[in-house]
Amino acid sequence: MNTLLLYLGPVILLLIVLGFVTYAILAERKVIGWIQGRIGPNQVGPWGLLQTVADIVKLLIKEDTIPKNADKTLFKLSPIIAFVPAFVVLAVMPFSSQIQFTDIGVGLLYYMAISSITTIGILIGGWASNNKYALLGGMRSAAQMISYEIPLVMSVVGIVLTVGSLNLNDIVEAQQKTWFIFPQIIGFVVFIISSVSELNRTPFDLPEAESELVAGYHVEYSGFRFAFFMLAEYVYIFAMSSLTTVLFLGGWNAPFGFTFLPGIVWFIIKFSVVVFFLYWVRATMPRIRVDQLMQFAWKVLLPVALANIILTTLLKEVPFLTHYY
C-alpha cells in the first residue's frame, strides 16, 4: 500500500495542480471582472465553469508551428525546461503534517535552487525562436527574475535565523505560537513584493505586457508549447502561495487553537487567501516602468532585506523578545 502510494502520490498531486490551474484561471478572470465592474466569463458551461477547459482544448488542437530559422531542438526543449522545475519544487512542500513527499534538511534552499532553473528555459526559449522581440523579451524577463530572486532569498534569512533550520517542517513547527508574519513583517513585505515579481504578475508583468509590447519570450510559441509556458507560470503561483503559507502564515497550524478543522483544511484556507491577494494586486495596481523596476529591486528591496537580517540578529539578543525571535 505504501509503495503504491509512493508511485501514485506524484500523479495525484499533478492532477490536483492541473485542476487548481484550470480553476485558478477562471477564478482570476471572475475576480478581476468583479473588481473592475464586469461580469467575467459566463458563456461556456454553467456560470462560465468550462471556460478554461475550452481554452485549453483550443490550445491543444491548434497547429504546432515552429519558425523556419529557429533552433528546433532548443525550441522544443525550452517549454519543458521551464515547466519541470515548477512541479519539482512541490516535492518538499509540507501541505500538512502527513502530506509531504520528501523531508530534506535544506528544503527552503532546494526551492530557491530548483526554481532558478526555469530562467534557463525562458532564456533558451527566447534565443531559440530566432526573433529579436523574443530575444529581447527573454533577456528582460531573465534580468528581472535574477534581480528579484536576491531580495526573495534575503527576505527569508530572518526566518532561518529565528528557527535555526532550513527544513520547512521545522519552520512550520516553530510557528505554533506566533506566525512569522508578525515578528518578520519587514521580511514578509519584501518577500511578497519579490514573489509577485518572480511570478511575472502585475505590477511587474513587464516580460509580457500585453497592452504595450508583443508577448516577450514566447512570441513565437503557439498551441501546446505556449500552454506549457502558461502552465509553468500558474504552477509557480501554486508553489509560491504554498511557500508563503508555510513560511509566514504558519502552514497547517490552526490559529487560536481552532483545531476542530484538520491541518490540511487550514492550509487550503490560508493558501486561498494568498492566491486571492495575488488577484487583488493584479486588478488594482498599474504596471511600473522598466527603469523603475531594476532600481526598485537593487536600491530599495535589497537594502531593506539586509536591514531586516541585521534587525533580526539584534532582536534575537534582547531578553524579553527571545520568545518571538
Partner: peptide, 13 residues
Amino acid sequence: VVQVLVYAGGISI
C-alpha cells in the same frame, strides 16, 4: 543544493 543554485542556476544563466 548549492551546486544547483550557484553553478546550474547562477553561472549557467
